[in-house]
Design a protein around this nucleic acid. Structure first.
Length: 759
DNA sequence: CTAGGGTTAG
C-alpha cells in the first residue's frame, strides 16, 4: 500500500486534492481504477467542479464498477440527471453489470420513470436486495402513491431503525403529521436520526414550539440535530432564535459545519443588519472555514440584503462553475430590490436554466418597480414555455401588474387559469384578486372575492376599502371598518388612509372627522386625507387651519389638495397660498403651474395667466405628459399626447376627427382649453396637442364592440377640457367610459359623470 | 455505499 493511502482521508479542501492528484501523476498511479475511484469520491465530498471530475474519470483506461459507481454518485449529488443516465448507458455498453449500489441511485433520480425501473428490477429478480427495496420505497415515498411505500415497509420481515426513519420521513414529505407522529411513537429503538426527523418535520409545518419540544427531549444531539433546529428557526423567519441557538450550540462545544453557517448566515439576511453580517464574517474567518458553494450563496444573499451589492456581485462572479439557479435568482432579486431593473434583466436573459423562481423574481421585480407592462410581457413569455407552471407567487405579481395597468382582460384570464387548475389560493392570493378587480374598476367582483374568502387579514380589508375609496363609496368603506372590528382585525394606518379617502371622495365630512379623531397617533398621511376632505367639501378655511395645526411639516400632497379645491371652489386666495408653497416644494412639477394658471383664467385674470406661463419658462419647467392606456385583446396600448406611433394611428385620428365633427354639430368646442385664450400662437401649438385620453378613447371606439365599456387609465391629473371631451363622447356614443385618474375613478355615461366633486 | 440538517421569488 502506498503512503498516499494515509493522506486521502485527511484531505479537507480542493487544493489538497489537487496536490494528491499531482503526486499520483508523478507516481503514474492516476490511471489505476482504485485511485480514480478515490479521487472521484473526494471530488464528491469537496464539491469539485464537473469538468475537473470528468477529467479524472476519463484518465481511467478501463473504468470498473467502483469507478462508475463513484462517478454516478458524483453526478447524482449535483442532480445532473442526464449525466447519470448517460453514464448508466455507457456502463451497460462496457458490459459492466450494475450492482446493488447503482440501482438505488438511479431510482432516486428517475422521477416518474421510477415505475419502469421497478418493473425492470422485478423482471430481473433484483428486488429482494435490502438496499434496492429501500430505494424503491423511497421512490414511492417521493412520487406516490404513498401506500405502495407503506406496503413495502409493512412487508419487511424485520425492520431496522433506518427503515422506521425512512417511512417517517416519507410521511413528513407528504405533510402527514399525524401518521409521522403515530409511527414515531411505535419505533422500538429510536436514535438521533429518528428524533431529528421529528424536529425538521415540525419545523416544516411551521410548528416550531413542538419542534423545539422534540429537540429538547432528544437524548443525544448531533451537529445535524442542531442544524435542523437552527434551520427551522431560520427558514420560518425567526432570525433571533436561530442566532441565539447557534450561540448556545457553540457554548456547549459543538462544532458548526457548513450547513450550520448557511442557516446562521441566512438568518442574518433576514435581519438585513450589516453590523451583524460583518461580525459573522469575522467569526467565520477566525474559524478558518472554507465555505462551500451553499455557504457562498447564502453569503451572497446576506450581502445583498444588508445593502452591499458589490460584495454580493463579487461572490456571484467568483462562484464560476458553482453557479446554479439559486445563485442566479439571488443575484437577480438583489438587483430588483434596489430597483436596478436593467442589471436584473440582463442577468435574467443570460441565465442558462430558468426555473419558476427565476421567472417569479423578475416578474415581481418589474411589477414592484413600476414596470407592470414589462412584467406582463414576461409572464406571457413564461406561459408560452410548456415546461413551466406558474404558481401562486407568479399570479400574485401578475394580478398586481394587471391592477396597476387596468388590464382586466388578462386579469380575468388569470382568474380562469386559477379556476381551471383548481389552484388553492392563500390569503395573499385572494388579496391580489381583490386588488386587481378594484384597480380595474370592478368593485362588484372585488367585493365578491372578499365575501368568498374563509379567512381575511388586515390587507384584505385595506385593499377593498381602498377600492371603495377610489370609487367614492364612502358608506361601504365605513361599513367595512365596523365589520373588521367585529372580526377583531385591528385597523392599521393604511386602513385609516383608505377610510378617510373614501369619506373625502364621497363628501362624508362628519363621519370622516369622527374617524380622524379616533386615530390614536395620526401621521402625516392622515392629516393629508383630512385636509383633502375639508378642501373637497369646500371648507377651505378649515383645511388651511388644519394645515397650520399639524405637528409635522406638510408635504406637497397636502398643498396639492388645497390647490385643486381652490380651483373647483374658485378661491384665488387659497390657490395662491397653496401654489406658492408648492413652487418651493416641487418646483419641477408643471401641474401646479397649470392649475394656478387655470384658476386665474377662470377668473379672467389674463395678466396673471401670462405671468405664470412666464414663470414656468423662466424656471425651465417642462409640461409633462403621462401615458394613457387601454387594454384590448389582452394587450396594453398606450398613448401619449400627439402620438402617432400606434400602427392604427391613421384610423385613430380619423375616428377622432369624426368625433370632433359630431361635437361641433352638437355645439361643443372640443379642443381649445379656456386657458389658451390670449396666449401667443407658438405656445398654443405646444399646449393644445391631442390629449392622450382622447387618443385612447378614439382607439377604444375603433376596436371595441358597440355598447361595451371603455376603460382608460391615466395616473396624472386630467385637464378639464379632456373630461369635457370624454363626457361628450360618452353622450354621443351612448357608451360608458371609465377613466382612472390620480387613482380615482370617473365614470361617464350619456354625458353624466358619476363623480360629483370634479366640476 | 439505505434514514435526520443547506442557499433563491410574493
Amino acid at each position: 500500500m502506498s503512503p498516499l493511502n494515509k493522506i486521502a482521508p485527511k484531505i479537507t479542501n480542493q487544493n489538497q486534492l489537487k496536490q494528491l492528484h499531482a503526486q499520483l501523476i508523478q507516481n503514474s498511479l492516476h490511471h489505476h481504477n482504485y485511485w480514480v475511484a478515490q479521487l472521484i469520491h473526494l471530488c464528491t465530498r469537496l464539491h469539485a467542479p464537473p469538468r475537473y471530475t470528468t477529467w479524472i474519470f476519463h484518465s481511467a483506461h478501463k473504468p470498473n464498477v467502483l469507478v462508475f459507481t463513484h462517478m454516478l454518485k458524483y453526478h447524482s449529488k449535483w442532480g445532473a440527471k442526464n449525466e447519470v443516465f448517460t453514464l448508466f448507458d455507457e456502463m451497460q455498453k462496457a458490459n459492466i453489470k450494475p450492482d446493488y449500489f447503482v440501482y438505488p441511485l438511479l431510482i432516486k433520480l428517475s422521477g416518474k420513470a421510477g415505475i419502469s425501473f421497478h418493473a425492470h428490477l422485478l423482471k430481473r429478480n433484483l428486488d429482494h436486495d435490502k438496499y434496492i427495496k429501500n430505494a424503491v420505497m423511497g421512490f414511492y415515498g417521493k412520487c406516490g402513491p404513498i401506500e405502495f411505500a407503506r406496503q413495502l415497509f409493512d412487508e419487511m420481515p424485520e425492520r431496522t431503525t433506518a427503515d422506521w426513519n425512512s417511512i417517517i420521513s416519507v410521511y413528513w414529505n407528504w405533510g402527514n403529521e399525524i401518521q409521522a407522529k403515530k409511527l414515531f411513537d411505535l419505533v422500538p429503538e429510536k436514535n438521533v436520526i429518528t428524533w431529528t426527523a421529528m424536529v425538521s418535520g415540525f419545523s416544516r409545518t411551521k410548528d416550531l414550539e413542538t419542534a423545539r419540544w422534540y429537540f429538547d427531549q432528544m437524548p443525544g444531539k448531533s451537529t445535524v440535530s442542531w442544524n435542523a433546529m437552527i434551520s427551522g428557526y431560520a427558514q420560518n423567519g425567526f432570525a433571533e432564535e436561530a442566532i441565539e441557538l447557534f450561540n448556545e450550540m457553540m457554548s456547549v462545544g459543538f462544532r458548526p459545519n457548513e450547513t450550520t453557517w448557511v442557516a446562521v448566515v441566512s438568518s442574518c439576511s433576514t435581519r438585513g443588519d450589516p453590523v451583524l453580517a460583518e461580525s459573522l464574517v469575522k467569526r467565520m474567518d477566525k474559524k478558518g472555514i472554507c465555505p462551500n458553494y451553499f455557504v457562498k450563496t447564502a453569503l451572497l444573499d446576506m450581502y445583498a440584503k444588508c445593502g452591499n451589492l458589490e460584495m454580493a456581485r463579487n461572490i456571484f462572479d467568483g462562484l464560476g462553475v458553482y453557479r446554479n439557479s439559486v445563485t442566479w435568482n439571488a443575484m437577480i432579486a438583489a438587483y430588483t430590490r434596489v430597483g436596478d431593473l436593467a442589471s436584473a434583466l440582463e442577468l435574467f436573459h443570460r441565465m442558462p436554466e430558468k426555473n419558476v423562481i427565476s421567472w417569479n423574481s423578475i416578474i415581481a421585480g418589474c411589477s414592484q418597480n413600476g414596470e407592470s407592462a414589462v412584467a406582463l410581457e414576461l409572464f406571457k413569455e413564461m406561459i408560452a414555455n410548456k415546461d413551466l407552471k406558474p404558481d401562486e407567487v407568479t399570479l400574485v405579481s401578475v394580478l398586481s401588474a394587471c391592477g396597476h395597468l387596468g388590464a382586466l382582460e388578462l386579469g380575468n384570464w388569470v382568474v380562469k387559469y386559477i379556476t381551471e387548475d383548481k389552484m388553492k389560493l392563500s390569503i395573499s392570493g385572494y388579496n391580489s384578486l381583490i386588488f386587481m378587480y378594484s384597480k380595474c374598476g370592478s368593485t362588484r367582483h372585488a367585493r365578491q372575492i372578499f365575501q368568498e374568502m374563509e379567512n381575511r387579514d388586515v390587507i384584505s380589508y385595506n385593499t377593498l376599502i381602498t377600492g371603495f375609496a377610489a370609487y367614492g363609496s364612502g358608506v361601504e368603506a365605513l361599513e367595512l371598518l365596523s365589520k373588521m372590528k367585529e372580526e377583531s382585525i385591528k385597523p392599521d394606518r393604511i386602513t385609516y388612509i383608505g377610510i378617510l379617502t373614501a369619506c373625502s371622495h364621497s363628501g362624508l365630512l362628519i363621519e370622516g372627522r369622527e374617524v380622524f379623531e379616533s386615530i390614536k397617533h395620526p401621521d402625516i398621511d392622515h392629516y393629508a386625507c383630512m385636509v383633502d376632505l375639508y378642501s373637497r367639501v369646500g371648507k377651505l378655511d378649515e383645511a388651511k387651519r388644519l394645515i397650520y395645526s399639524m405637528p409635522m411639516q406638510p408635504h406637497a400632497g397636502i398643498y396639492g389638495s388645497l390647490l385643486n379645491a381652490s380651483r373647483v371652489h374658485k378661491r384665488i386666495d387659497h390657490g395662491e397660498f397653496a401654489a406658492n408653497k408648492l413652487f418651493v416644494l416641487e418646483p419641477e412639477n408643471s401641474g401646479n403651474y397649470v392649475l394656478l394658471s387655470n384658476i386665474y383664467a377662470t377668473a379672467g385674470r389674463w395678466e396673471d395667466v401670462n405671468r405664470i406661463r412666464w414663470l414656468m419658462k423662466k424656471k425651465g419647467v417642462k409640461k409633462t405628459t403621462g401615458w394613457s392606456r387601454v387594454e384590448h385583446g389582452g394587450k396594453i396600448h398606450r398613448f401619449i399626447v400627439g402620438d402617432h406611433a400606434h400602427k392604427l394611428s391613421e384610423d385613430i385620428y380619423r375616428v377622432l376627427a369624426e368625433m370632433k365633427k359630431k361635437m361641433r354639430v352638437a355645439g361643443y368646442i372640443a379642443d381649445e382649453s379656456c386657458v389658451l385664450r390670449d396666449v401667443e400662437e407658438e405656445e398654443k401649438e405646444e399646449m393644445v396637442g391631442i390629449h392622450s385620453e382622447k387618443l385612447a378613447v378614439a382607439f377604444a371606439l375603433l376596436v371595441s364592440e358597440p355598447g361595451s365599456i371603455i376603460r382608460v387609465v391615466k395616473n396624472l391629473r386630467i385637464c378639464g377640457d379632456c373630461h369635457l371631451a370624454i363626457k361628450i363622447i360618452s353622450q354621443l356614443e351612448h357608451r360608458e367610459v371609465i377613466v382612472r385618474d390620480n387613482n380615482r375613478f370617473h365614470s361617464f355615461k350619456d354625458g353624466v359623470c358619476s363623480c360629483n366633486d370634479y366640476w
